[in-house]
């Protein structure tokens, strides 16, 4: 009897903390928020990590105390305990200690809030517009409009002015910074800065309807020269196919159907395009599409064109009942929209 309840208490304590111990050994995910790669994310991590430790210590104390009480004071047939009704000193103690601890946490928290909610004066600006279910990026100074992949210079702060065209979305590149909502009718602000060139994955955080899960984001940080080269090529009109190529048939298709929703600079103009700007759809940096949920390969594009809503439920790009010839032509055309190729 005696040893059984002791064993029980020990298992109890172990089982409670076991999952937390195991937690430390998960493999990295591209969305890992504990792997900061930029100053904002690092600041958050430096603030958050000690808090996890403090919480862990408090947890250990409480669970340890609980386990101790369970073992030490279990019913072993001893006499009934003294009827203690309380203790004012202890009461003050366990009110005061948490207050002091929390006050200690409050100071750096408030500092970090203020530091992280403003942009540096020399930050570069990008406008982010949320759509069901893709992110659009506009570079106001450079005059660039693109989608899904945001290209930024590494080591430079980018100030995002964000809004939404429909419902709430939530922009999140875990390795670079925390989240911020995109609110229709309002502007919100977020900064991004990557220490090193690289590809950073992201995901829309706020539930925004059917394809919320497939509303993903990419940030590609490149070094300054590559960035400038990218800007220069993005400012060119689209690379259009030569007559007679399969891609040229795709261009005709585009003009026939797609141009009501998509813009390709140098081909068409729209007041308020519904779909992503496709001007440089095949730029090497723009390696994902459809809300950054698909790699930009010929097969995926073909699948997409065949029936967008099966790939992204609820997608506002309808099934256009394209024939496979039309799809082939369009794929060739779209894959040719690569400003590095030139013509």
């Amino acid at each position: 009897m005696r040893s059984r309840s002791r064993r029980r208490s020990v298992t109890f304590a172990l089982l409670t903390s076991l999952p937390l111990l195991l937690g430390s050994c998960i493999e990295g995910s591209p969305l890992d928020s504990l792997d900061p790669q930029g100053p904002a994310a690092r600041r958050i991590d430096e603030l958050g990590t000690p808090v996890f430790w403090i919480a862990g210590v408090i947890l250990a104390i409480v669970l340890g105390g609980l386990a101790f009480a369970m073992i030490r004071y279990r019913d072993r047939g001893q006499a009934d305990p003294r009827q203690i009704h309380g203790n004012a000193k202890l009461e003050v103690l366990w009110t005061a200690i948490p207050i002091i601890l929390l006050a200690g946490l409050a100071v750096p928290t408030v500092q970090a809030i203020f530091d992280l909610t403003e942009c540096e004066a020399d930050a570069m600006e990008v406008d982010v517009i949320g759509h069901q279910w893709w992110f659009e990026y506009r570079y106001p100074e450079e005059g660039i409009t693109t989608a899904n992949v945001m290209v930024i210079p590494a080591g430079k702060q980018v100030c995002l002015n964000m809004t939404s065209d429909d419902v709430l979305h939530n922009y999140w590149i875990p390795k670079l910074n925390g989240k911020r909502y995109l609110v229709p009718g309002q502007q919100t602000l977020l900064t991004l800065e990557a220490d090193q060139p690289g590809e950073y994955w992201g995901q829309c955080g706020e539930f925004c309807g059917l394809s919320h899960a497939l509303m993903r984001a990419r940030v590609r940080a490149v070094d300054q020269t590559d960035y400038e080269a990218w800007v220069a090529r993005m400012q060119q009109p689209a690379t259009l196919p030569a007559d007679g190529t399969p891609a040229a048939a795709g261009l005709a298709e585009f003009n026939g159907i797609c141009s009501t929703c998509h813009v390709i600079e140098g081909v068409n103009q729209l007041d308020k395009p519904v779909g992503p700007n496709l001007t440089h759809f095949a730029d090497p940096y723009r390696n994902v599409f459809a809300g950054a949920s698909l790699e930009r390969t010929a097969e995926h594009i073909a699948e997409w064109l065949a029936d967008p809503p099966t790939i992204k439920p609820g997608s506002f790009m309808p099934n256009l009942n394209l024939t496979s010839d039309e799809i082939d032509a369009l794929v060739a055309f779209l894959q040719g929209l690569d400003p590095t190729k030139g013509n």
């Binding site: 928020s33 994310a41 600041r43 958050i44 603030l47 958050g48 808090v51 996890f52 919480a55 929390l102 946490l105 928290t109 970090a112 809030i113 992280l116 939530n170 999140w172 875990p174 910074n177 925390g178 989240k179 911020r180 955080g205 706020e206």
Partner: peptide
């Protein structure tokens, strides 16, 4: 819950 109240940390945690 207390780790959420560390606001910047919650910017990472929220909606996850």
């Amino acid at each position: 819950g207390v780790t959420h109240s560390i606001v910047p940390a919650d910017w990472q945690q929220t909606d996850t």
